[in-house]
Simulated assay, not measured.
Amino acid sequence: MATLPPPAWSGAPAAPNLVAGAQALVAKHQCNSCHGPELLGQDAIPRIRGQREDNFAKALAGYKSNARPGYDPAMNEVAQELKDDEIRDLAAYISRL
């Protein structure tokens, strides 16, 4: 499954202000340091690019609340700083990549 290409987004593109804000969040939280430069995952770190928006938002919220343990504590630590609107924006942006 890890070798399957990410699904292609078929809906409307993300609004430019959403893209800019979410790209800033990706940089701030260094998402690409673990998930790779294109967010395609590497080694035991999963691909997040193209994930379903609702599932990705639920996962981030779970990391933030510590209801979802991460592979290592990094995701739980990073998610602590995320506000609800940032989780929504990241999920909307990354699902459309």
Rank of each mutant, 00 (worst) to 15 (best):
A24E: 11
Q30S: 14
E86I: 00
P37W: 05
A15I: 05
M1S: 13
D89S: 10
C34I: 01
L39M: 11
H35W: 05
N66M: 11
A44N: 11
S65R: 06
P73A: 09
Q51S: 13
R96V: 02
L4I: 08
I94V: 15
T3I: 04
Q80D: 06
Q80F: 01
D84H: 03
D84S: 09
A57G: 08
N76C: 04
E77V: 00
E86W: 00
H29Y: 15
S65N: 11
G50K: 05
S10A: 14
G50P: 05
G41D: 12
P13H: 04
D84G: 02
P7D: 07
L25T: 08
D54R: 07
K64P: 07
R47T: 08
A8T: 13
L90W: 02
N55G: 12
N76L: 01
D84Q: 11
A27Q: 15
F56L: 15
W9L: 02
G62N: 02
P13A: 13
N32Y: 04
P73E: 12
K28S: 13
C34S: 08
G70C: 01
A67W: 02
L82R: 06
L90R: 02
N32D: 10
L82E: 03
W9T: 02
K58R: 14
D43A: 14
P73D: 14
V26W: 01
A61N: 10
S33I: 01
R96P: 03
I94S: 01
H35K: 02
I87V: 13
G70Q: 05
A79T: 07
I87Q: 01
P6V: 06
S95G: 08
P46T: 05
A24L: 10
K83G: 12
V19H: 04
G41V: 07
A91V: 02
A8P: 04
L39I: 06
S65G: 07
D89C: 00
P16D: 13
K83Q: 15
Y71M: 10
A44W: 11
G21A: 12
I48E: 08
H35L: 06
P73Y: 00
Q42N: 09
A12P: 10
D84C: 01
K28G: 11
N76T: 04
V19L: 09
E77I: 05
A20R: 14
A15M: 06
N32S: 08
Q30M: 10
A61F: 00
A61H: 09
G36R: 04
A8V: 15
Q42I: 00
A67H: 07
P6T: 04
E38V: 00
Y63I: 01
E53F: 00
A92T: 13
A15H: 13
C31G: 03
P16N: 10
V26H: 08
V78D: 09
A12E: 14
N55M: 11
P73G: 09
D89V: 02
G50Q: 03
A59D: 11
Q23S: 11
K58H: 12
G41N: 11
I48R: 03
G50Y: 07
G70M: 03
